[in-house]
Simulated scan of single mutants.
Amino acid sequence: MTVLVTGSRGRVASTLLGLLHSAGIKVRAASKNPTDLSPPGGTDSDSGTRSAPDIDTVRCDLSNPADFDAALEGVDSVFLYAEPSHIETFLARATVAGVRHIALLSSSSVLAPDAAENPIAASHLAVERALEAAAARGDVEATHLQPGAFATNALQWSWAIRAGRPVELPYPGSHGDPIHERDVAEAAFAVLTEPRLRGSSYLLTGPESLTFAEQLAILAEATGRPTPYTPVTPEQWKTSMSAHIPETFADALLSYWASYDGRPAPLSRTVEELTGHPARTFAQWATEHAEAFRP
């Protein structure tokens, strides 16, 4: 079996590469900048130095169909990021290459009633629908991983916290379900290596519903540093983020946060069902990433 892992510079994909490699599964790391990849490799037992990586690397920009054939050659399964621009072409080339299974890193946002109109959900939904159509034709088996809020989203606060400034929050009491990136990678590993798990959609969440204010308090405990916040209006937050987030995305985020202001996020036990262990807590993630929040 050979697994193509797209977006291999990402936190989930890079962790998945290590899991597959450790399990002795042949894996190909794909990125639009493959020279920047550092996939797991062997170590020379005599010198103790790192030998040439035994994971192949390949260029695969999902917005450039010219990359698809070389990336897919000899591949049985794919871990796919949700890039909709050429998804029909990608699936057609995957079918010709003999790919049997695609595991998509989607998003729980596709479950919202307005997913098709939501700029954050729409791209994931478009790829899910294309995969479902391919599966209905019998071209490929499709599995959808639908994580909620990534714990790594907290890194957006690191600049302010390191500088000793309060974090600006438009909805301090908005709940989320922060999930550890390793749990998402382990869930992907499970569906890629266990044929009985293929062909379903899996809602992945962390084990707790936490407000933004509670997440900051957990970071304070993990880092031993104050993590104050300042409530701001949605318009103030949009203005402060205008150089980093398109307005339509900012509006979608604000709408989502408002919908969970004071309302716990729904949780699932899917991580435990797929991996055999409970989902890691945000406190564990904060401890592991504490240095990112220190000067």
Rank of each mutant, 00 (worst) to 15 (best):
F68Q: 00
D76I: 07
L125V: 06
S200C: 15
A265N: 14
E83M: 10
S255M: 12
L274H: 12
P195T: 08
P147C: 08
E214A: 15
E272D: 13
A279P: 03
P295E: 04
S77I: 01
E132R: 12
L4H: 00
S31V: 01
H144L: 11
N33L: 12
R198P: 07
Y171H: 12
T233C: 13
G74C: 05
T233K: 14
P228M: 02
R137S: 04
R59D: 01
A217M: 10
T205P: 11
D183F: 01
R9A: 13
H180K: 06
V184H: 03
V27K: 02
R294Q: 10
A130T: 01
S109M: 08
E221S: 08
P84T: 02
F189G: 00
E117V: 07
L4C: 01
R100I: 06
R137T: 09
A82G: 09
I102H: 03
P113I: 06
A82P: 05
W285V: 12
P228K: 03
P65M: 02
S47V: 02
K26R: 05
E235L: 14
E273S: 12
R93H: 11
S209Q: 11
R294H: 11
G276K: 07
S63F: 07
T143H: 06
Y171V: 07
A130Y: 06
A13R: 00
K238Y: 11
P40L: 09
A70K: 08
L197S: 10
A136R: 08
T6G: 01
G199I: 09
A112K: 15
T211A: 04
M241L: 07
T15Q: 12
P166E: 04
A52K: 15
L169C: 09
A126V: 04
D67M: 00
P170I: 08
P266R: 10
H21C: 14
R28W: 04
S22P: 14
N153Q: 10
A29P: 03
S22G: 13
P264F: 11
V99A: 00
P119S: 03
R162Y: 00
A217P: 12
L145R: 06
V167G: 02
V27F: 01
A258L: 10
P172I: 11
A133H: 14
P172M: 11
R50M: 07
D177S: 14
T57S: 00
G173N: 15
F150S: 07
G148Y: 14
A222V: 05
A126L: 08
W157V: 08
P40R: 03
S109I: 09
T239N: 15
A66T: 09
I120E: 07
A252K: 07
R294W: 06
T275S: 04
R129Y: 06
G176M: 13
L105G: 02
